[in-house]
Structures are given as structure tokens and as C-alpha cells.
Design a protein around this nucleic acid. Structure first.
Lengths: 339, 339
DNA sequence: GTGAAAGCGCTAACAT
DNA sequence: ATGTTAGCGCTTTCAC
């Protein structure tokens, strides 16, 4: 910057101001500075700038499991919004475990991110979240809601799971198994509650043997479903509570030589881009990932800009998409919109 | 850091050294420093550290299109390796256009990334790449190879495309259409060459009407395929050269009420995790995304550590997976390994 | 084994 | 409209 200043015959402070547009500069001066910058091939050092200015124009994103394509789309949506706002995304993967998560968030905090978006692992509230709050860094939770006072965005879980289950019940199914997600996070609990409530509303007792812990993993879901479907009294229907477990469940079903929906009615939470193109076509509750990601980004940006109002908890509705994996007679006909 | 030093009764330089393990410190002193750090709840400022030390421990990744799940997995693989090595990932999306790409890479350079991984958009070599090279930042190209002297990692394209096409030819198809990717990048060119070479080897003339420009986009591929398949002399087979265009092609096919492989044999470059689970099951050439991502990360890391040997160009082999969308009689039987 | 102090490349308050 | 300069919070050389 010194060199630029010298070449343009001005002071570094003028260079800084033309660079940032932070005060009026005589057009002629500006010209000389711009020319000097070009001639030298000067590039501003954002690290120094961040240190001096006290902000980095970065937002940290700690994702629970990048292996899950759902989180991939979330990253995309967040990145898009942030870059529109002139911010940059620093990405970390917590592998859905408290220890790595803490490492990721510590590293982000050390790097002085202006804000943080966190898809919390189970147990975040004991160590990770208090630490972030203590640092004073604006925080927004994504995908999984927690009972802590900060901005949160997630999908509607309970009602959507209810709807999926009710759909199977309405088609006459009575033994409906569920593959539920990783323990200790809201999305798992809420989706399970929706399932349980749908059964209760129809006066059907919840059979614990039909409750499978898929731990949000392809492999675990596959082995649980394989066990269940290899047993003697198999369910007539299955609801999978996220996309990884859907893949796992279908691997198991296919592995056993069963077919959907003939041998097993199937519905799932989370949709795929290609769901309309392949058989069986999955009846699913689709999250609006773009909206969730964008909203999360908007929320941090607001906080970064200094808004101090009460924390918001935003639920983004899902879309129930009726296809043929549920095997019901109404298959392929549009269904009445939910409430 | 001053506060910590004062509380521990040492100098800041000692604090710095215990923090970084950069020189011997009396165990007792170290204890006092650690205690002080804990008591104050001190957190190092990595921005200041980066400025003073001249390195940021960050690597920038500019991806061509985060909408493509293939690149999502690439991000994942790269992040994993970098975080293992104590580096942090800064992510940007170029939307496969030169201008946004330049903005992304400029921003990464301004942020003093220690190294950069770039999935180049068409036209990168005119502005983006020279600029990065000029900055002296270690650069590795990913997915798309260019005729520039820097490290590069990408999939094997030509031979895999040849194999896909040859497979259709060997099943008796003579009119084989291709949906090729975005213009001006190596993967498109090389995959097209593989296709053309397979035809030529069988003495079949390339029919330009069967060459569709899908521009690596779901929508464009869909409309091109729809046009072609609505026409009078339809091909008997189609090869799609990446996963986005595969989705697009299948949308078109389904939209026209045609079925695969009965009405159209279909094979594609790029595989999906669920390809075994749904019908039609795609015969595909699967990239080893994990290896590509990991290798790219390893290469930048090497450069960052100062290795100065000649640029490497690494091709990662694909896996031909034979399923039933090609409609050939040998379907589902394993195929002889390539060469 | 430890400390003092000179930067790293900027921003922004204060002057003029 | 422009310049001077004191930091920002560290690392690292040099000295003891």
C-alpha cells in the first residue's frame, strides 16, 4: 500500500479510502491511485484489514454430516446468500459428534468469524453452544432446534411425520414400522412424536419392536431394516425419517428380494431430485432446503449488522408429495393440501 | 495475550511460545500460563497470528457448480483431508462462469489463502488462472484439466466414455445419441472424443443430429432430449455425460411416456449412490470422487509445504458398473474389467 | 529459560 | 480534500 501511495503521490490513508470508498476523494487523485494499483498489481491484504477493522466478513458454517446430500444443499443455499452479501463461507464438518464439533467451532471462533451457523450435533448444548455464546459471536442454529435463546431455522417435523404416518394408516396399514434418526436431536424426537401421535389418534398401540434406530446412517438403517424384515411378523409399511436412512432401508429391502410397494408400503421424510424418475417413486415429505439455508444466512447477517431483537425460531413447511411407494389406491392422484 | 502474560507473571513472548510449542518452556511456567489462559478464557486471535506469521492455514476451494451433487461430494472429500491436516476450507461457487469465478478467486487471494483448489469454469485460463499464478499461491486444478503448468486431478474421461459407447455398440445399437456437457472444458471434450472414437472404431459415421449440447444442466439436457425424442428418427440408445444431464434426460424420457430400456437404451457417465435401488438401474461409469478430492487436497498441501517439483497431472480411474438401463442381454452379469 | 521490541499491512481518529 | 499516526493482536529476532 505504501508503494501504491508513493507511486500515486498520496498518503496511505488516501489509498485506503479510495479502496474502501470511505471518504470523498478528488476524482483526479482517485484516478492516480487506481492507476498505481493497476500498475503495481496491488492486492489488498484482507487479513491485515480484518485485524485493523475488527471484522472479517466471514461466516462459519459447522455442518453435522457433509456425507448427507441434504446438508450439501444446505451449504449451497447458505453460500449463495452469503456471497451475495459480500461475505465468505468457512466450512467445517462435525461428523455429528460433540468433540469434532467443538474443534470445528473453536477453530471458527479463533478465526474471528463475524457470525456462525451451526447444525448442532447431539450434545452441542453442553459445550459448543455455551462457548459460542460466551464469545459473543452471533449464532444461528439450523436443521435442529434447541431450547436455547438464539435464532433457529428448521423444517416442520412433527406435523409432516404425522402426515406420512396417517397416510399409511388411512390406506389400511396397522403395523407400521419407523426408522428414526440419531438420538438426542430435535428432528428425531419431533418426527417420532408425529409418528406416535398419528398412531394414538387412530387408537393403535405403539409396538416398540417396530421402532428402529437408524441413527441417521445408511449402514445402520440398512442392518436394522434387514433384521426386522427377516423376522417372522413383518410390518406391512415402513416410514423412514431422513434420506440417508431411506437409502439404507431400500438397500435392505432390495437385498431381501422384497419389492415396494407390493411387499412393503414405504414413505419417507426428505425427498430426492430424481424421485419422479425412478421406480418405486417415493411418497415423501420434501423439505425446502433452499429456504432453510437462505433464512439461516439472513438471520446471521441481521445479527452481524447489529439487530438485537428477541431470538426467532422459524419453521419451514415441508411439501407432501404423493407417489406410488405407499402403494395406496389413490397413488399418483394429487392429495388435498395439508391444513 | 497481555492479560494472560500479566496474570501468569511472564512476557507475551512466553505466552506465545507455550501456545505454539515453539520453544522450550519451564514446565512450571507453562503451568502458570495454561492456568491463566483458562482463568481468563483467552482465545487466540488467528487473524493477528496470520498477519504476523505470514500464513493463514486456509485453503480456498472454488467450485464450478455447487448445485451438482458431484461437486458436493468433492467439497466433502477436500474438507476432510484439509481438516485432518489442520487447515480450514474457504468455499466459493463460480456458477461455471468466468466473471463470478474471478470474483471468488480474487476474494480468496485477498484473504491470503495458503493454497487454492479450483474447479475451473470455461475460460479460466484467460483471467483467473494467470492471476492466481501471478500471486504465487499454490494452485491445483480439479475435475477439469487444462494445458497450464500446475498440479491437476481429474477423472479418466476419454476411455470411460469410449467404454460406455462401445458397450451400446456391442449390444447392436447403431444410432447412439450423446448428451454432452458445457462447452470449452476438458471433461466435455474428452468424453465426446471417447464417444466419437468408439463410433469410428466400428466404422459408424458420427451423426451431428445425435449430438446434443446439454451444457451440464438438468434443464437444458431435458429440453434437448425431449426435442430429439419427439422427432421422427429417434436414436435407439443415449449416453449422458454427467449426472445433472442424466437427470434431465430421464425427465424428458419419462415426460414423453417412453421407458428405459424398452424404448431407449441408456448409459451414463457418473453414478449415484442409489443406482442399485431403483428402476431403471443405470449402467454407468462411476467416478471415484473421494480419491479425486483427497488427492487434490494432498497436492496443495505438498505445495504449501514447499515442494517444488514438476507439476503433476493425475487421472483417477472410473468404474464401469453394468446394470439394466442399457437393456443388453448380459444385463446384471459382471463385465470383464477394462483393459 | 525468558524478555523486549520491531514489525506484519492495514484502518480510522485526529489534524490540517 | 488529504496526511499523520496510533493501534489491531500476534510472531519472532535478538539479547540476556
Amino acid at each position: 500500500m505504501d508503494d501504491v501511495a508513493r507511486l500515486a503521490g498520496v498518503s496511505v490513508s488516501t489509498v485506503s479510502h479510495v479502496l474502501n470508498g470511505t471518504r470523498n476523494v478528488n476524482p483526479a487523485t482517485r484516478q492516480r491511485v487506481d492507476a498505481a494499483i493497476l500498475e503495481i498489481g496491488y492486492r489488498r491484504n484482507v487479513v491485515a484489514r480484518s485485524l485493523a477493522a475488527g471484522r472479517t466478513h466471514t461466516v462459519g458454517l459447522s455442518i453435522a454430516a457433509l456425507t448427507n446430500p441434504y446438508f450439501g444443499s444446505l451449504v449451497h443455499a447458505v453460500e449463495r446468500r452469503l456471497s451475495e452479501a459480500g461475505y465468505v463461507l468457512i466450512l467445517g464438518d462435525s461428523h455429528d459428534e460433540p468433540q469434532p464439533e467443538r474443534r470445528v467451532t473453536d477453530s471458527l471462533l479463533d478465526r474471528q468469524v463475524d457470525g456462525m451457523i451451526l447444525a448442532p450435533a447431539a450434545g452441542s448444548e453442553v459445550s459448543t453452544i455455551p462457548e459460542i455464546v460466551r464469545s459473543g459471536t452471533p449464532l444461528v442454529l439450523i436443521d435442529r432446534m434447541l431450547d436455547v435463546p438464539c435464532d433457529q431455522v428448521g423444517p416442520e417435523n412433527d406435523a409432516s411425520a404425522y402426515e406420512l404416518t396417517a397416510h399409511l394408516l388411512d390406506s389400511g396399514h396397522r403395523r407400521i414400522a419407523i426408522v428414526r434418526g440419531i438420538e438426542g436431536i430435535s428432528s428425531t424426537t419431533e418426527r417420532f412424536d408425529g409418528y406416535a401421535r398419528a398412531l394414538a389418534d387412530r387408537g393403535i398401540e405403539l409396538d416398540p419392536r417396530l421402532v428402529l434406530d437408524g441413527r441417521s446412517s445408511v449402514e445402520v438403517a440398512e442392518s436394522r431394516v434387514r433384521e426386522l424384515m427377516s423376522g417372522t411378523d413383518r410390518p406391512s409399511a415402513l416410514v423412514s425419517m431422513n434420506n440417508s436412512m431411506t437409502i439404507g432401508s431400500l438397500k435392505a429391502v432390495r437385498g431381501l428380494g422384497l419389492s415396494i410397494p407390493a411387499d412393503l408400503a414405504f414413505v419417507c421424510y426428505d425427498d430426492f431430485e430424481w424421485s419422479d424418475l425412478f421406480e418405486p417413486r417415493l411418497t415423501a415429505a420434501a423439505q425446502d432446503v433452499q429456504t432453510i439455508g437462505r433464512t439461516a444466512a439472513d438471520l446471521v447477517l441481521r445479527r452481524i449488522e447489529g439487530h438485537e431483537d428477541a431470538p426467532r425460531s422459524i419453521r419451514v413447511p415441508t411439501t407432501f408429495t404423493h407417489r406410488n411407494s405407499c402403494g395406496c389406491t389413490a397413488a399418483d392422484k394429487p392429495v388435498a393440501p395439508r391444513r
